[in-house]
Design a protein around this nucleic acid. Structure first.
Lengths: 241, 241
DNA sequence: CGAGTAATTGAACGAGTGTTCAAGTTCAAA
DNA sequence: TTTGAACTTGAACACTCGTTCAATTACTCG
């Protein structure tokens, strides 16, 4: 009588780890800091409480992994948004037809950041890519209060949890380096020396983070279009000196 | 035999509430989110666990009160920084001697925000006050990683805790209104209509919050002087359009 | 001084925490 | 079909959590 009724399904460690990371992000999005409990996460993943510590040395390690996963996803979305302007040398005088479109993202795949790093000096598209970057910051799937709030929780954890702090340090440095390269390229386009690119990238990141923060806590404060306007105004000023 | 050895000291509810709020902020600064426990706070305040719920209906109410207290303190520091430029009509051509000084603040007193609201249209000091505001953002006692991090914890709580959310909403609105008045006054000084003052104030607040966030998580990213430079560059751009 | 008010204590409660680990189950390889 | 490695379970452990409340203490007022 129903001898084939399995009580659970074995999975490869890699797949299970990924599912647990996904469940962690889901709990975080739904309940914020309060969602970060072994029992809530294991229930969301449909597994028992003991399984988490079989695949991760500690809860903190799982959270750190979730941080990395979310950052990878964000970087992929940005890279995808930038790829819509191919970084070729030939097609220069291209009109900005794509500007008004809502972006479409492949949200799953984790792709290399080569698109940003490969921005050639003097390319006529760097500024357009910068605009793309800004527009992607205020478009789906990034502009989701639940998702944005996850960053706030990670930030609040990073100060007193070394493992989380290390992830934040590394991901921030990588993200800043990519943006700095883009800013430097845009500066060269307008004939400026990219001396201040580093600080300018820090400022733009801070502005975007600050707008994200406010918008996720109260989306009625400003519209996405206004956010884009503010960030582009910053970019303008950046490129003028 | 020492019959006068009191086991505890009675205090007026108001004083005790204030002490508990202070202990809450101290725990928050020292341990972040993990410091928000009845036992830790009561120990820091030197009282028993039961006393908190005698003076506050719930832990959340105490945290909300601590939020309000911290915001009041911040507003007082800003108001104090602005008062160093008296809002008189007479002394116009004043040189900017005070620019390089490190600020001194009276950190305790909670004063009205009339200083900011009273900025007269066409006053020659509005832009200087704006600079003062920015400088105060990156000077003691504001620029303390432990203190700045408290804001991050409050932000992380505000999304899923209605009582905290209400405090954030109210304090943000008030702070934004003050800054907007200052920005509008500075715009009028340079002959611009203050139409965009509201959005500009949102942007400046976001930039400052974003810089605070990054600096408190990793003070090595940029120096306070660089933070001031970035914010003033934003102000410049703001006043040009 | 003696009585009343209320600030304060601290044990107790029930629920939730992350982690451990022996026992059970699945599935691929022999 | 049997073996065995390891993925999975869930009870158990030793906490910590916020809150309650009867008892105690301090101080004021009459």
């Amino acid at each position: 009588m129903a001898t084939t009724a399995r009580k659970f399904e074995r999975q490869l460690p890699e797949a299970r780890r990924q599912a647990l990371v996904e469940a962690t992000l889901a709990c975080l999005a739904k309940q914020g800091h309060g969602g970060l409990s072994i029992r809530r996460i294991s229930e969301a993943a449909g597994v028992s409480v003991g399984l988490i510590n079989h695949h991760f040395p500690s809860k903190t390690a799982l959270v750190a992994e979730a941080y990395r996963a979310l950052d990878n996803r964000l970087a992929a979305v940005f890279a995808g948004a930038l790829e819509h302007f191919p970084t070729e040398w030939k097609p220069v005088g291209r009109k900005k037809v794509l500007k008004t479109n809502t972006l479409e993202h492949r949200s799953g795949s984790i792709r290399s950041n080569s698109a940003l790093a490969a921005v050639p000096a003097g390319s006529s598209t760097a500024r357009q890519q910068l605009d793309r970057y800004i527009e992607a910051s205020f478009s789906a799937p990034n502009l989701d209060p639940d998702i944005l709030h996850i960053w706030v929780v990670f930030w609040s954890l990073s100060r007193h949890t070394p493992e989380i702090r290390e992830v934040r340090e590394a991901t921030y440095a990588a993200s800043l380096a990519r943006l700095e390269a883009l800013v430097a390229a845009a500066m060269r386009e307008v004939g400026r020396k990219p001396k201040s690119a580093h600080l300018a990238a820090i400022g733009l990141t801070a502005l975007l983070d600050g707008l994200w923060l406010e918008w996720c806590l109260n989306p009625r404060t400003f519209t996405p279009a206004e956010g884009i306007k503010l960030a582009k105004a910053w970019a303008d000023q950046m490129l003028r000196g």
